[in-house]
């Protein structure tokens, strides 16, 4: 890549935002799968978000590979492996909003229950505890004007920034491509659609935030040469 392309400044710099997640217990519990489904239908969307997305903030050393709390509870506490596998395959980034995601989770559980004679219930551990997520955004005062600056800041900043610019951007802010890809692609950003395309191939599901960071850095380093 020519240095003039690498060094050129974006018209609009990229502002990195980080976050702290504060957890609030809703006082709603489920001791079997029927109760789980009923509660999922009724809890605030912030709770659906917590159990399906902010899982990324806790994912790196989770008790299973399953990427959401509903699937993990089904696997560990209810020991219903079929249900956990079905719930585990949900990719939250495929849904246009959290209400659609909630509907999909409910419909998977409903279909599963219809195929059984008995309602699977808690056999190990604790009831499912519904929690909601308060995401407190923090302006990190880190600004990238060029691709090189972007790469170097991405390598060193708090991982919560990846959560904000990927998970929050896509699911709660309606910025479907995520902030990083949009900025790299946009003419008001770096205007590098080919690089943006490569970055867009990195799918969050199945990765931790550190895993996403590593993949992105690898793509950027490859591009920068």
């Amino acid at each position: 890549m020519q240095s003039s392309v690498l060094d050129h400044e974006a018209t609009t710099p990229f502002h990195f935002i980080g976050c702290i997640e504060l957890r609030e217990m809703l006082g709603r519990k489920a001791a079997d799968v029927q109760q789980l489904m009923a509660a999922i239908e009724e809890v605030p969307l912030d709770s659906i978000y917590y159990h399906t997305h902010s899982y990324f903030l806790r994912y790196e050393h989770g008790p299973t590979l399953l990427p959401n709390d509903f699937a993990t509870w089904a696997a560990i506490s209810v020991r219903d492996r079929a249900l956990s596998e079905r719930l585990g395959l949900i990719d939250p980034f495929e849904f246009r909003d959290l209400e659609s995601l909630r509907n999909e989770v409910v419909s998977i559980i409903d279909d599963h229950l219809k195929s059984l004679w008995n309602v699977p219930r808690l056999i190990h551990g604790e009831p499912f505890e519904f929690i909601r997520s308060h995401i407190i955004e923090v302006d990190l005062a880190m600004i990238a004007n060029s691709l090189r600056e972007f790469r170097d800041l991405l390598a060193s900043l708090d991982r919560s920034s990846l959560f904000i610019h990927i998970c929050e951007a896509q699911m709660r802010k309606g910025r479907r491509a995520g902030d990083f890809v949009s900025w790299i692609e946009s003419e008001t950003g770096l205007g590098l659609p080919e690089l943006a395309g490569r970055m867009a191939t990195i799918q969050p599901l199945g990765l931790s935030l550190e895993g996403i960071r590593s993949r992105m850095l690898a793509v950027l380093d490859d591009w920068l040469g």
Partner: peptide, 16 residues
């Protein structure tokens, strides 16, 4: 601490 955490705290604290 994890990378970037101290910077995050310093920025967050400005709000309070």
């Amino acid at each position: 601490a994890p990378p970037g955490k101290v910077d995050l705290l310093q920025q967050l604290s400005k709000q309070v």
